[in-house]
Simulated assay, not measured.
Amino acid sequence: MGVTAVARSPFARSVSISGERTAGAQATRKITLGAMGAEVPIVVTAEDGTEATHTLQIRRRPLAQDTTLSGLVPDAGTLDPAFDPDVLGYALTVPGDRVAFTPTALNPKAAITVQGQAVASGAASPPIQVPVGDTAVAVKVVSEDGTADATYTIKVTRPEPELPQDGATAPPARAALSTTSGRQYGLHDGTYDVTMNLWYGVNASVFVLYENGKEIARRDLTPKTPSAQKATVAVTGRKNGTYVYTGELLNQAGRTATTSAKVVVTDANPGRPGLSSDNWDGDGDYTIRMNMWWGANATSYRLYEDGVLVDTQPLDPATPAAQSAATVLTGRPAGRHTYVAELANAAGVTRSDPLTVVAE
């Protein structure tokens, strides 16, 4: 760490930090800290030659409580200012639409997340999508013992690309947006295409698609004015909610907004499961069966007995096909038992209605 010592009198001859003397009334030196810190002697020599010695005690908290990064490296651009473990805020300009960071913790046992995604110390994060404009990226470090945390924040800027030099003398004609949500199965499950169609007119070289005002895709086009142009963007993994799509067509002469398209996702969560049992004889040995007959598929099944998880199984999704699972239970004590199933996918969880089984 850096230590700066300033003499009270501006006429001091010198200032010494850890034996390294600097002429004048101020000195700065980098100090290497040990596991517990450092003891730094500072000697000030006055104008008349007399010396005064001071001791700076630097105490370092135990490594298990440390939340410091020793390195933070982007895969594009250069951090501003240059990385310093004690500086938490940075700016970064990148040329493309994605960036990844490699954070290294001083304590390799500290937990690191980049934009909420767990990352091993010294390993690259998953790529982060960067739309045109500013995006805040958070790198959080949690101490080994979980008692402290620190967040390094990087303001990532992606400049607006220059208009393509395609020789156009007029801006593009206006295009229309459409979506395929609900067309294939009647499900608005968060997986669909957004398509731009320019039926006739001055062509564009670039199509930009925005979702709720944020850029999510950019496609290069081949202009052949006045022929039709088309571009399709696949959208996946959207949770239940409303998504408004807008676009821009760009050429050398300018940019033109497309029409908008709205998608309301209502079926992203798994379809509702139903439960049944084969406890016809009323003993404590029976099978609970789950069936989801049609709808968005799940990737996992969980069964609860009287509020306690008793079974978990992975499922293979093939929306909108039926899914099923069975849980074999033996030796259940006499009494009433209530079962609830959960189906889960990346969008959310859907619970079944309760099923009551009586064991005698």
Rank of each mutant, 00 (worst) to 15 (best):
G348A: 12
I154N: 00
K140E: 14
V235I: 15
S277D: 15
S181I: 06
T299V: 13
V265D: 00
V6C: 04
P273A: 05
H337D: 00
P172H: 04
V233H: 02
N345R: 06
L249T: 06
A105F: 01
V6D: 11
F11K: 11
E305G: 06
A257C: 12
M36G: 14
A136K: 14
G122V: 06
D285M: 12
T287H: 12
A35Y: 08
T113W: 04
T53W: 05
E160D: 14
T55R: 08
D353Q: 11
F101D: 00
A12R: 04
I128N: 01
A296M: 04
G89F: 15
M1W: 03
A268H: 02
P62L: 07
T242N: 08
V235G: 00
T179W: 02
Q65Y: 01
T28G: 10
R61Y: 09
E47R: 15
G96K: 10
G335T: 03
D80P: 07
V94N: 00
A322Y: 08
T225K: 03
S143T: 05
S16N: 12
G71V: 06
A123G: 08
W280M: 08
K239V: 13
P317A: 07
F101I: 05
T299N: 07
S143K: 02
A253S: 13
Q229T: 12
V99L: 01
Y245C: 03
S143C: 10
L315Q: 07
S143L: 05
A52H: 10
R255K: 15
A12W: 03
A261I: 11
Q115W: 08
G182Y: 05
S143E: 02
V139N: 04
P161V: 11
E47T: 13
V358H: 10
A123R: 12
S178K: 06
V264K: 09
A46I: 08
